[in-house]
Amino acid sequence: MSGTPSLFEMARLQMVRDLRLALRRGGEWLQPLVFFLVITTLFPLTFDSQLSRLRDVAPAALWVSALLSSLLALELLFRDDALDGTLEQLAVSGTPLSWVLLAKTAVHWLLTGLPLVLMAPVVAGALGAPYEAIPGLLLPLALGSITLSLIGAIGAALTLGLRRGGVLLGLLTLPLTVPVMIFGAGASVRIIAGQSAAGPLYLLAAVAVLALALAPLAIAAAVRINVE
């Protein structure tokens, strides 16, 4: 067996390796999910007993919690690979770095973003969202969490070589997430109100496609700078 692996094979290698590492490292990847559940559980407890008021803030609570949870795991996204020389090996391997790092970011989303989406029905129910609206909330959250992972990965790559990079990571990443938050929360508000959310959903999808196209290039450039 010889020859150069295809892009698909490279992505599979990267994803299998990162998933295997996540499983062997125990519950580290569960932390964002637990954080998400704790924050969203605190919201109903801090509100008065009027369900309608809680329902009004449900989209904001859902999206801000999702954003903060996704930030929590970002600092570690590339750090271990930088410390043990994996990023150096990737940078000199002659393989398309942006593609391999996109696969790595995809695993990050699978471990931190997807669980949030899957838990969203429970959380939305606890926040007073009508049951018939709950399935509709999954799509904007899925699109939004993908974009948050991609934007976050740029920040994580840029702050790789910095001590206390976590604070700077937040400062770099949060402004870039504003469109995601506006369109995502906007779509969720309309879905809960029983209205059509096509407009904000299309915009959210457009932002996701844009991030998918540009973020891997930015991540790869930032990683190359940091392995120097």
Binding site: E9, M10, Q14, T86, V100
Partner: peptide, 8 residues
């Protein structure tokens, strides 16, 4: 992993 990225 490391070799597989370069050659099968």
């Amino acid at each position: 992993y490391l070799c597989g990225l370069r050659r099968r």
